[in-house]
Amino acid sequence: MGAYVLRRLGWGALVLLGVLFLLFVLFFAVTDPDDIARKALGEKVPPAVIEQWKANHGYDRPLWPWQDFENNLLFDHYRRMLTFDFGLSDADDSPITERIRDGMGPSLALTVPLLVLGLGVSIPLSLLVAFFRETYIDRMGVFLCVLAMSVSTLLYIIGAQFLIGKVLRWFPISGFDPDPLLLPRFLALPLLVGVLSGIGADVRFYRTAFIEESTRDFVRTARAKGASEARIMTRHVLRNALIPILTQVVLAIPFLFSGSLLLESFFGIPGLGGVTVDAIQANDFSTLRTMVFIYSLLFVFGQIATDLSYGLVDPRVRFE
């Protein structure tokens, strides 16, 4: 098992190096630092100001190692990212590390309850739908799922803000307050939208997993020994169907830290998703780059965690 983990970690490191290279190509080779500087400072600034700005951000060196092996942007990019020295924002010169640290809390405040609520709603619902498979309840359920999947998240957000926030005035339209008494009021709407927009795809996916498991021979065995349908669903089918579901969930855990782009920016939650959206709208390349790297880092760890968690649920999996 130790060797397996090591090998997975080695592969993950390799993938991260690949991600960093792609980022370099996208953000330095395709859009060169002069473009970035002009986007940050304006089109008509004197060259001296641009040089000064590039020096401040560490962009004042050649791109590739073959141009200058000691002092080039590629190696510098790798060194800084891998040591978590993310530098300054291209847009407003604020330190990126600080913004990430500040954004983590609000992001988690939104995403953790969102994941728990989402699972709490979709797993029972999909069990119910799978239980009534091939009846009109199942067909209705699947149709509702497809219906829910066909609505753009934008429309969910706008609809909820308009209907519940503006017309009914149940919850504030947007905003954030870390005070534990006020927080639920602010989170209610984004949570509702988050659960609603995910429910269609999730229920359908889980339903497929449940139904696939419930056509297996061991289910017939369980019936033949006199187990009730409810018991078969919860004891025999759920355990087996949890394996594909678990993959999804464990993979989602790292992304709890990164927040949700749409929900955070629409509902004014100062989390990492919001940071990312601000960076996009302000042409803030260094922040964007950092965010992509952090997402990828989390993703790679999530995948390793998923593989290892297989071993916990599925006795057939052995790590060699």
């Binding site: 592969w11 390799l14 993938v15 991260l16 690949g18 991600v19 792609l22 980022l23 996208l26 953000f27 395709v30 859009t31 990164s258 782009l261 990312t276 996009i280 042409n283 390349f285 964007l288 780059r289 965010m291 992509v292 997402y295 990828s296 993703f299 790679v300 995948q303």
Partner: peptide
Amino acid sequence: FFLISTLASMPGLLLLIALIMAM
């Protein structure tokens, strides 16, 4: 396999945005 692993571990929406900003 390396290429698709790398691309798959980059967040889709962000990669998309980065590409559009670059192109």
